[in-house]
Nucleic acid binder design. Structure first.
Length: 586
RNA sequence: GUCCUUGUAGUUCAAUGGAUAGAACAGACCCCUCCUAAGGGUCAGAUAUAGGUUCGAUUCCUAUCAAGGACACCA
């Protein structure tokens, strides 16, 4: 089963009107056929529509239009339906009273930051593992993407009502650490290294890794020795250096996580699961395949492997012929560790780049085979690459773009842009640039389906106009400006007053927020939230251009101010789900 | 070769099996005496190919083509 299906099993009320209409229609047709209540794409058709007549036409052998008319006549219309229409080829459209949407707007203003939050009957824990950088190596753009994506998934799950445990699993052991240690040793640490700034230090480390990788073939023996010393925790000059680099890497990473707004609840260093990984492989190693033991790992060419053929998978090495457990074995140990630390864990979700899809199929399959407690609990989801100019970057090539580069670049562009447009003092400019830059980068990354790659054009950087994070922030800022200048004292919304199309369009879209947060969460799809928020900002901007608020007549003013306030609130709530902060001016 | 993912305007992305396939950027125009023009408006422009399922397919199925990824001792 997919994790999405499990999440969808929780009974929560997402859209009460939809549920009401569904029940009423269902009563009439007596479960003869599946149908849906949906929002028509074209809003002039109505607020809700159903395809029930078309679906029923095949069963009843009658014209869908006639069936639709019958149903429309028979249906017991809820009070909040203003109008019902039947249209060719057989759609039944429902128009909802404006009063309902006004009352939903009241809910927004009352519930504020709690608007759109779901509550589950039982608080369940979900662990989300994301980020996973390696120490002794550059923090790549992929890690940036993973961290930003993971944070958003955490926020979305929290919004669904789960208790989320943010987890990081970082690679502080293995050949890459040995390579880097060797590389640094060869290059020699500069005298004044300690006084360098952390990014510059890290750059030096990353270069040492590239250098060692290129020189690996001629120096394999020396590097492998370092690797063994690290694994065996031998005290040598090299392992001391290894520890020093590790400490520095971790400080560096923590700084980046903080910049991105992530604070982990739990961190698992790979070195910590190493011993257990060994044990798991040994305990499940079938040394004599002919004795009928039901142990799943076997010997092959000096290594211990998992033969996944029966399960439709390939062969994976569990323990190298050198005797070290592989990353897969360590991931198994990590699984056990997670469930030991949190025995009441409802689900685990590991979020990585798409290249690990098949690998995690094996991890999960093996975990489920080894222990029943993992069945239906351990999941993996992936996201596509962050491409530079349509191409992948590699941490081995010299010309790679590091994670910190795109953070710095985005900040630089935001600063320039603000300096061009506004005359804020330095402190204010710094703070606004920081928020705007992150909004731009995060929105760019989150606005794509996880199955797809994201293109980052280093020339253009990210857009600050149109479909972008700053566009949404800007709408928020405009709404806040209105509220600041209106000295509003609570908001009154009358009214028998006929609303304009722009006001109605905004009002109705605001009410969609809860269902969009739900969809975005259960489908693990932050991009759905991006699309919603963009359209909200768009509708607000159109409203803004057509409906003066502060200079409106007294009777118009009530609802318009409420719309501005409601929009600001929903934008803020939605952006928070993406891990994006707001600013009051920009 | 086997398996997985993805093919929609010039470009980057949308569209729980539904009504006229939506946006943004780039292009051509228009709008600041009015709440921040990082904005609003107008025009032009797209479902890889061939079958199938369905009342209805961008969406589901099959094949082909194209791009990317995974596939034994690196993580």
């Amino acid at each position: 089963m997919q994790i999405q299906e499990i999440l969808k099993k929780e009974k929560v009320s997402v859209d009460p009107i939809k549920e009401l209409l569904y029940q009423e229609v269902a009563k009439i047709i007596e479960n003869k056929v599946d149908f849906v209540i949906e929002h028509p794409t074209e809003e002039s058709h109505g607020d809700y529509a159903t395809n029930v007549a078309m679906a029923l036409a095949g069963v009843l052998k009658e014209s869908p239009l006639k069936i639709a008319q019958d149903i429309a006549k028979k249906i017991n219309l809820p009070d909040l339906v203003e109008k019902i229409d039947v249209v060719a080829p057989g759609f039944i459209n429902f128009k909802i009273k404006t009063d309902y949407y006004v009352s939903e707007l009241e809910n927004i203003l009352e519930q504020k930051e709690d608007y759109g939050k779901f509550e589950l009957a039982e608080k369940k824990k979900i662990m989300i593992e994301f980020g996973q950088p390696n120490t002794h190596k550059a923090f790549t753009v992929g890690h940036i993407k993973g961290t930003i994506s993971g944070l958003s998934v955490c926020r979305l799950f929290e919004n669904l009502g789960y208790e989320v445990i943010k987890t990081n699993y970082y690679g502080d052991i293995g050949m890459h650490t040995a390579k880097t240690t060797w590389g640094v040793q060869q290059k020699g640490l500069p005298e004044d290294f300690e006084s360098w700034d952390k990014h510059k230090k890290m750059e030096f480390i990353a270069e040492a890794y590239v250098y060692a990788t290129q020189a690996f073939d001629e120096n394999e023996e020396a590097i492998r020795k370092i690797n063994i010393d690290i694994y065996q925790e031998n005290k040598t000059e090299e392992t001391e250096l290894y520890e020093k680099i590790k400490k520095m890497s971790l400080e560096h990473q923590e700084g980046i996580f903080a910049d991105l707004g992530v604070v982990y609840d739990k961190q698992y260093p790979e070195s910590q699961v190493y011993e257990n990984a060994k044990k798991i492989v040994e305990e499940n190693f079938n040394s004599n395949p002919t004795n009928g033991q039901e142990k799943i790992f076997v010997e092959s060419q000096g290594a211990i492997i998992y033969d996944g053929e029966e399960d439709g998978l390939v062969t994976w090495v569990m323990k190298t012929s050198e005797g070290n457990p592989t990353y897969l074995a360590k991931d198994l140990a990590l699984g056990y560790q997670k469930f030991e630390d949190y025995s009441d864990l409802f689900l685990n979700l590991t979020l990585t780049c798409v290249e690990q899809d098949d690998y995690f199929k094996a991890v999960i399959k093996i975990l489920e085979t080894l222990d029943e407690k993992f069945v239906g609990k351990y999941f993996h989801t992936s996201f596509g690459w962050l491409l530079m100019d349509g191409k992948k970057t590699s941490s081995r090539s010299g010309k790679n773009i590091k994670g910190t580069d795109i953070l710095e670049e985005s900040l630089k562009v935001a600063k320039t842009k603000i300096a061009e447009l506004k005359d804020y003092d330095v402190e204010k400019r710094e703070e606004i640039s920081r928020v705007v830059a992150l909004a731009g980068l995060k929105f760019l990354i989150l606005s794509h389906d996880f199955n797809k790659d994201v293109n980052y054009d280093p020339e253009k950087f990210v857009d600050f106009e149109g479909y972008s994070g700053p566009y949404i922030l800007y709408a928020y800022v405009r709404a806040q400006a209105i509220l600041r200048k209106s000295n509003h004292l609570g908001v009154e919304h009358p009214s028998d007053l006929e609303m304009s199309e722009w006001e109605l369009s905004l009002l109705k879209w605001l009410a969609r927020y809860p269902q969009k947060t739900y969809q975005s969460g259960v489908e693990i799809a932050p991009y759905t939230m991006c699309n919603y928020l963009y359209e909200l900002a768009q509708r607000f901007n159109t409203f803004y251009a057509n409906c003066p608020v502060i200079n409106a007549t007294e009777e118009e003013k009530g609802i318009r101010l409420a719309l501005a306030e409601g929009t600001a609130q929903v934008l803020k709530n939605g952006l928070a789900l993406l891990g994006i902060e707001t600013v009051e001016e920009m």
